[in-house]
Design a protein around this nucleic acid. Structure first.
Length: 351
DNA sequence: TCTGGGGTCCTAGGACCC
DNA sequence: TCTGGGGTCCTAGGACCC
């Protein structure tokens, strides 16, 4: 049975759970939609020792949202994370101060945050199976095989050293959208149309969050899963859909070479656009009189942004389908397998 | 597990600057 | 014109996480 995902519901519930976290401490660092670090060192006088706080959080989340959550309590981020992993799906595990290494060292290395299949395979050649094994490897050896940052980092983690603070309100670093198509795209026109669709998504999210991107990256996946990326960095950050799309199309043309008739010798399985180097606000070049109109002319940034402002406002009032680029009219995404179920309420009717 | 979509961080090489 | 050390920024790719 395939059900459509309901991201709005997940986001709303996530916000409820995070609000509960924040009623215990302001030091909440969200890791993803369903995971967070809480520094409760300053909350003990009010809420009791960490295990009591953990139990209280679990109870409140269960009462108020109906969700089961797992909590790990420990002296470092790594240990708290590992403890909660082990406590899943509905448990509480406390690593008592002093018991850190006894807890840590018997665990397999791949439980360490940052050790995936590739790193695990490299460590395997040194006979490293457990985190304790890893702690016994000299740091210089690790740096030699894994590189400066990862080598040093893993050596410290394996030794139980992890002084990373809980950092609330971390800024996002990039905003992107990508899509894998049911059937490979086979013409340049397909690619350009889908880049427009993706650029719309990225631009809308950028503007809604008040960010502008200095770097635009396109990602293209071919049927053999090779996945080149191309990026361009502007002098001035932008949040204009047209500029994102124009740039993405130019970059993509450098990777997918079309035949004279517009068909592609190799199909395209996935496309993605991402904006990075995010800054607050957009630089707008005011027009100099030299070229008779400067940036407000069609295709200039001021004009692009004016269009975006109107489109955003219309969609806010009438729904995302109310205004659509002409080339996307009546064209559902080629990826349709998780479309809304037939009896899903039409959101436009609610408005 | 024949591989979705959202991200973060690191590395290496090259251009460029003082 | 060549050399050197120290540094930043950009690009492309890859590992990893949820």
């Amino acid at each position: 049975v395939f059900l459509p995902p309901r991201f709005d519901d997940y986001a709303r519930t996530s916000a409820e759970v995070f609000a509960i976290f924040e009623s215990f401490t302001p030091l909440v660092e969200g890791l993803s939609i369903d995971e967070a670090f809480l520094d409760v060192a300053g909350a003990r006088r009010l809420h009791g020792p960490p295990p009591a706080i953990a139990a209280a959080i679990r109870q409140r989340v269960r009462d108020e949202t109906g969700l089961a959550i797992s909590v790990g309590a420990a002296t470092t981020k790594l240990l708290a994370k590992l403890a909660s992993d082990i406590a899943k799906p509905d448990g509480l595990l406390v690593v008592e101060p002093g018991g850190e290494l006894a807890f840590l060292h018997p665990l397999p290395v791949e439980r360490l945050w940052g050790v995936g299949p590739a790193t695990r395979a490299r460590l395997d050649r040194f006979g490293v199976r457990t985190i304790g094994d890893l702690a016994a490897v000299p740091q210089a050896t690790l740096v030699g095989t894994l590189g400066e940052a990862q080598g040093r980092h893993l050596h410290l983690l394996a030794s139980g050293v992890d002084d990373r603070p809980v950092v609330p309100d971390r800024d996002v670093k990039s905003i992107g959208a990508e899509e894998t198509y049911d059937a490979d795209l086979v013409t340049l026109a397909d690619v350009e149309r889908e880049l427009l669709r993706l650029g719309e998504r990225v631009g809308t999210r950028l503007r809604a969050a008040g960010w502008a991107a200095r770097t635009v990256t396109v990602k293209i996946r071919f049927p053999d899963f090779t996945t080149p990326t191309r990026s361009r960095t502007f002098t001035d950050p932008t949040d204009a859909t047209a500029e994102l799309v124009r740039t993405a199309v130019e970059l993509a043309r450098g990777v997918v070479a079309a035949r004279p008739d517009g068909t592609l010798p190799i199909g395209v399985r996935l496309l993605g656009i991402s904006g990075g180097g995010l800054t607050r606000g957009v630089a707008v070049q005011e027009a100099l009189p030299l070229d008779g109109g400067g940036d407000a002319r069609p295709g200039g940034r001021t004009a692009d942004r004016a269009v975006d402002r109107v489109v955003d406002a219309v969609r806010e009032r009438f729904g995302d389908a109310a205004v659509v680029p002409a080339s996307l009219v009546g064209r559902a995404s080629p990826r349709t397998q998780f479309g809304p179920s037939p009896d899903a309420p039409d959101r436009r009717a609610d408005r």
